[in-house]
């Protein structure tokens, strides 16, 4: 199990390095996927097959794909790539690199102060499930709250605001999160809500 670990570790490090230094966002994301996959391998070598599977399915399969979708939706084009190149000068990364290196050193120092462990065993899905439905039950429920909040928040925040007429009708006092003074926005919300139901919201296009 040692050799796969180190191979995967090397791949992970290199892929992450590429992920953060590419100028093209899609390239960066693809490198991120590689890194994630190698991390999954590492999880497996560490005796956590369930985690490895989840890593691939959720992280690489959902999160990074979502990121990819948004990147492609924004459709930045070639000039963005060129711009990115100009932004990444030495002056920009040298100090963060030093900072990160300092942190790394500190972590290594901390970690090396402990004696190596003796045991190494595989923790299977069964055990994880038992733990989830046992002591961590409340946490699971809260995590589900989190997910609902995430869904609603993402939906709400990602909506396009229609520039309606200002003032005018005192619209329905929509119970908006963080109320706005202009009645137009409240009308907005109703329209948007109606729009969603009717499938009116158009992604992309000029604002």
């Amino acid at each position: 199990m040692v050799v796969p670990f180190f191979v995967a570790a090397t791949i992970a490090v290199i892929a992450t390095l590429f992920a953060i230094t590419r100028t093209n966002a899609v390239h960066s994301l693809l490198n991120l996927i590689v890194a994630i996959l190698s991390l999954a391998v590492i999880f497996y070598t560490l005796g956590a097959p369930f985690a490895a599977a989840l890593e691939v399915i959720v992280y690489a399969g959902a999160i990074v794909v979502l990121l990819l979708f948004v990147v492609m939706m924004l459709n930045l084009g070639r000039q963005a790539v060129a711009e990115e190149r100009t932004l990444l000068t030495t002056r920009v990364w040298i100090l963060p690199a030093l900072l990160a290196a300092a942190l790394l050193v500190e972590l290594v120092v901390l970690l090396s102060a402990r004696a190596p462990a003796a045991r190494n065993s595989i923790v299977g899905p069964t055990e994880v499930g038992v733990a989830l439905f046992g002591p961590y039950l409340v946490a699971v429920e809260i995590a589900s709250f989190l997910l609902i909040a995430g869904i609603v928040g993402a939906f709400h925040l990602g909506r396009r605001l229609r520039p309606g007429s200002q003032g005018g009708q005192a619209g329905a006092p929509g119970a908006a999160v963080g109320g706005t003074p202009a009645g137009g926005v409240a009308r907005e919300r109703r329209q948007a809500a109606a729009g969603v139901l009717l499938g009116e919201d158009h992604p992309g296009g000029a604002e």
Binding site: P96, A97, V108
Partner: peptide, 28 residues
């Protein structure tokens, strides 16, 4: 192989540092 978790921790530190680097470095 008993030391794998420790190496993994070091690897985690490295990856975390690189992630931090990316956060501070990029403007996009």
């Amino acid at each position: 192989s008993a030391q794998l978790p420790d190496y993994a921790l070091v690897l985690a530190g490295i990856l975390f540092g690189m992630g931090l680097l990316g956060v501070l470095m990029r403007r996009n």
